[in-house]
């Protein structure tokens, strides 16, 4: 059964816990009756915000497969380049594949240009991959970083492949719980510390309400001087 033609696109279902879960629901039916076309949704809370001179990226650390937490300390803030990071939501496998490709393209690009790549270019590559393969990929990604020409920037590569620059952006299942909060508390031109607090508060609220988000808060602050990572364990 697992050798079926479509098991590659639905590889998350191979997770033993969810297979067992489905099997249990089916009662005594054999494992061969598992419905492989049932998608597994992966919950997340991610966000990024521009401040005067840089960006703050933040994410929870929970990766879940159904109601089982597959990884309680996952790192959803992935480096694409030295000062460009991406936060992934949606299918873990799909967005990992996209960020792997983009990292590879950016390596090539930097090799050729011999200078740091623009954040916009990284965001364009991500959205291009999401757009051109929209029928196969399920994911939204935030690209955030710093470059010498345009400073701190946040781009949302939304579902379907649209690319929107925003002063701050949220994503994942947790983001719907904090949409109004973020809109209310966001101030343009925040300082570094204000931006860090903004992300921290919002993520804690998202994790408090969204069962698919939780664990720890990871933050990455990127500015002209470089990259600083922080980790606050066991928030929810």
């Amino acid at each position: 059964m697992f050798g079926m033609a479509n098991d590659f696109t639905h590889r998350e279902i191979m997770d033993p816990m969810s297979v067992m879960h489905t099997a249990r629901q089916l009662g005594s039916a054999s494992i061969c009756d598992v419905d492989l076309s049932q998608p597994v949704s992966l919950g997340t809370s991610i966000m990024a915000v521009e401040f005067d001179g840089g960006v703050v990226c933040g994410a929870d650390s929970r990766t879940s497969t159904g109601s089982y937490i597959a990884n309680r300390v996952s790192d959803k803030i992935t480096a694409l380049d030295e000062q460009i990071y991406t936060m992934r939501s949606g299918s873990a496998a799909d967005t990992q594949a996209v960020s792997d490709y983009v990292r590879y393209y950016l390596d090539m690009h930097r090799n050729q240009t011999q200078k740091p790549t623009a954040v916009k270019t990284a965001a364009k590559l991500v959205s291009m991959l999401l757009y051109e393969n929209k029928s196969m990929l399920m994911g939204e990604m935030i690209v955030a970083g710093w470059d010498a020409h345009n400073g701190g920037q946040v781009y949302k590569c939304a579902m379907g492949g649209s690319l929107i620059r925003r002063p701050y952006s949220t994503g994942g299942s947790g983001s719907i719980f904090i949409a109004a909060h973020c809109e209310h508390t966001f101030r343009p031109g925040m300082t570094r510390q204000q931006a860090i607090d903004f992300v921290d508060n919002a993520l804690r609220l998202a994790m408090a309400s969204d069962g698919s988000s939780g664990g720890s808060v990871r933050k990455v602050v990127i500015d002209a001087s470089g990259v600083e990572r922080t980790y606050t364990g066991g928030v929810f």
Partner: peptide, 12 residues
């Protein structure tokens, strides 16, 4: 519900 099944849908 499952975008992978359906290529003809607007998202945003």
């Amino acid at each position: 519900d499952d975008p992978r099944k359906n290529t003809l849908r607007p998202m945003v």
